[in-house]
Every structure is written in C-alpha cells, then in structure tokens.
C-alpha cells in the first residue's frame, strides 16, 4: 500500500497555471484508501477547479493506476476528452503519474505527495519508481521522476556525464534520466518547465525512523492526526 497525501491546493493551482482544460484521474487503489484520489476527492477537485474558472473536460477513477496496461485500456473511452485537455491532473502516487505519462502524450501534473510505500510498490512492473520523497517534482519533469531516473538524483538538469542519451555509469543499460525528461518535455512543447530552478530538496520529508518505515501505520496515524487537526 502506498500512502499519499494531497498537495496543497495552491500548489496544484500553480502547476495548472496557463492550462484551461483539465482532465482529472483518480485511483481506486491506495489513493482511495488514503482519501487523496478516490471518487470523492476527484469530485471535490472538479468542483474546486471549476470555482477557479477551469474547465474540467472529464475525469476518471481507475482501479489501479500502477498497472500500465490497465491505464491505457481504461483511459481509451476518454480519449476525445483527454485529447481536448491542456493537461491531466493525476491524484495518485508518483507511480500513477508516471504510468499515465507513459501512455498519454499530455502533461501530467501530480496532485499528491507520496510519504510511504508501505512495503509494496503496488502493481507497477515498469521501470518507473517512486522514492517516497514526500515532495513530488513530477510536475516539472514531464511525469518522469528525476529522483529515480537520474543516477545522481539531480533535480536541475543533466550532469556532464550524459552521452548519446545514456548515463556514463553503465551506459549499456542505463538511460540518462534527464535525457528522457528533456525529450518528453520537448515532445509536449513544455520545455519551460525544465527552465525552472528548483530549490534544494527537503530530505527531512523522507526520513521516518527505520522501525516506522517497516510498517505503514506511522503514515496512516500521521494522516489521521492531520485529519483530526482539521
């Protein structure tokens, strides 16, 4: 089970700047359990975005966004709406965002931060990985995670070791993550995202104690505490 929390609405709104027509994707798996991307949260998001003057061209809450084949199959009936959208808002874990990015040629904005993977990585069997960093950057990187795709987890662009699209460390098998990000953003006409200088990562968000990290309870309790504080 992957524990996620919603990104603050102002951050989501900022990531949607310049995009008028939005398609929203939720997930009936972990995100529904976390109440960050189930039917109820997606409908609430539709309302909130409409209040901000956005046009929500459609939404879909899939069974498991971490199953790439399923994502492609389930989004097919929404193809026209998705094609007409400026971008997609994905209210799931980072794997869901990357899964969608892998099958849809549109900008995919993350709506959540992953705080814990809880011992399993969902159903996803692709190359995409989520580092549970608690501060999802997929909005800036075309739906490809720089923390896991780049050998050095660089967040502001490639190092000098990128050659023919490969990482100089194990070039036979390892793509340069930033080359993938660059090609993806270029394809989407979204290279401006790469020009944003990102602040140093706040690694304190991904440092729960080992004994807590071996269970998902701490993350759930944290969410409950936050919910009751509201």
């Amino acid at each position: 089970m992957i524990i996620s929390e919603s990104k603050p609405f102002p951050e989501i709104l900022k990531s949607l700047e310049g995009d008028q027509r939005i398609f929203i994707v939720g997930c009936k798996g972990c995100a529904e359990a976390c109440q960050t991307g189930g039917e109820a949260q997606v409908l609430e998001m539709v309302k909130q975005l409409q209040q901000e003057g956005k046009i929500v061209v459609g939404h879909s809450v899939l069974d498991f966004l971490c199953d790439k084949a399923l994502v492609k199959f389930k989004l097919k009936p929404h193809e026209d709406a998705i094609v007409s959208a400026d971008s997609l808002l994905i209210m799931t874990c980072g794997i869901g965002v990357q899964a969608t990015a892998a099958v849809v040629d549109k900008v995919t904005h993350p709506g959540c931060n992953v705080v814990n993977v809880g011992g399993s990585r969902g159903e996803w069997r692709g190359d995409e990985r989520c580092l549970e960093c608690g501060d999802c950057l997929l909005d800036y990187t075309g739906g490809i995670c720089p923390m896991t795709a780049c050998t050095k987890s660089l967040i502001n662009g490639p190092c000098g070791g990128t050659k023919d699209g490969k990482c100089e460390f194990e070039p036979e098998t390892r793509d340069c993550g930033w080359h993938l990000i660059y090609e993806r953003l270029k394809k989407l006409g979204n290279l401006d995202r790469m020009k944003v200088t990102l602040d140093p990562k706040d690694y304190s968000k991904m440092r729960p104690p080992e004994n807590l990290r071996s269970t998902i309870m701490w993350a759930l309790e944290r969410k409950e505490k936050e919910a009751s504080a509201k």
Partner: peptide
C-alpha cells in the same frame, strides 16, 4: 539540456 542548465 546543457544550455538550459547553464542558464540556471
């Protein structure tokens, strides 16, 4: 990509 980073 190198130019984008250099600019940063």
């Amino acid at each position: 990509p190198q130019l984008i980073k250099l600019e940063k």
